[in-house]
């Protein structure tokens, strides 16, 4: 355990996370937020789980290092900015707020998210956006700058996912298989090539219409702003829209 180096200067707080267990780290974050901190810088983060879990605040939390699994789980309105890579379960069941990752993310990014926005600059692992959901006007958005591994959008029930393919070389065909398996809500916009056999049986493909284009423009512009890309250049690429063919794909599976 390192010494608590919490030092407060006005509304900005710096925490040296080195050696802290996640419980302690989250306690320090909560205390800083309660005292009105607008910006919290976490340094030396190395694998602490559940950072900023269930946090409701207007604060920006800048994370230097490698945060552990379930970063921002149940996040309820803060902005988390990671200068590095995120591990598995980033934005687990997130409700409000924003997570911005200047790197890649592990498996199940955005799982079961019900609101808020997640921007990943590079690639994501398996099952990104699994079972994201939405209700009436509320839904999450997950924007992936690179590409994804298999089971992207598995059992997706709502929300918006954008995959930009910026890390793909040459032929720019995505390699993920079983994309949208079990998908029954929400939408995936994918920039670049994908073959039909890479898609789950429950997925339809179409061209983005004008309404889709407006959504894409908003999300890509935000993405480009976070990471210093040219939004127009990205938007000029070829997008396909993946959508669920059925609202209850397994409705008859266990009945006669």
């Amino acid at each position: 355990m390192s010494v608590d180096t919490l030092s407060q200067k006005g509304l900005a707080v710096r925490i040296d996370a080195n050696g802290f267990h996640h419980r302690e780290l989250n306690r320090l974050i909560r205390e800083a937020v309660a005292e009105g901190a607008q910006r919290i810088d976490l340094h030396g983060v190395c694998g602490q789980r559940y950072i900023a879990t269930n946090l409701r605040s207007g604060a920006e939390i800048h994370i230097h290092g490698t945060p552990g699994n379930d970063l921002g789980a149940f996040l309820d309105g803060s902005r988390l900015i990671v200068y590095g890579n995120a591990q598995d379960g980033c934005g687990n069941t997130m409700n409000e707020g924003e997570i911005i990752v200047h790197g890649h993310a592990g498996d199940i990014a955005g799982l079961s998210a019900r609101g808020g926005r997640i921007f990943i600059r590079e690639d994501v692992g398996y099952r990104a956006g699994i079972h994201m959901k939405e209700y009436e006007g509320k839904g999450p958005a997950l924007v992936i700058g690179g590409t994804a591994q298999d089971f992207l959008g598995e059992y997706m029930a709502g929300g918006t996912m954008v995959v930009l393919g910026l890390t793909l070389n040459g032929g720019n065909c995505h390699t993920a298989s079983f994309v949208g398996t079990g998908m029954h809500g929400g939408v995936i916009y994918l920039r670049g090539q994908i073959n039909d056999y890479q898609l789950g049986k429950e997925v339809g493909v179409s061209q983005p219409n004008r309404k889709d284009r407006a959504i894409l423009r908003e999300l890509v512009t935000q993405f480009a702003g976070h990471f210093g890309f040219d939004a127009e250049e990205i938007l000029a690429g070829r997008f396909v829209k993946l959508f669920p063919l059925y609202l209850r794909p397994y409705g008859r599976l266990y009945t006669y």
Binding site: C46, G47, G65, T66, P67, G68, N69, G84, N85, Q87, D88, G106
Partner: peptide, 15 residues
């Protein structure tokens, strides 16, 4: 987990 690797080798050629 990547963090365990970064703990002992903060700078990596590739992860």
């Amino acid at each position: 987990e990547e963090s365990a690797i970064r703990l002992v080798s903060p700078q990596l050629d590739r992860a």
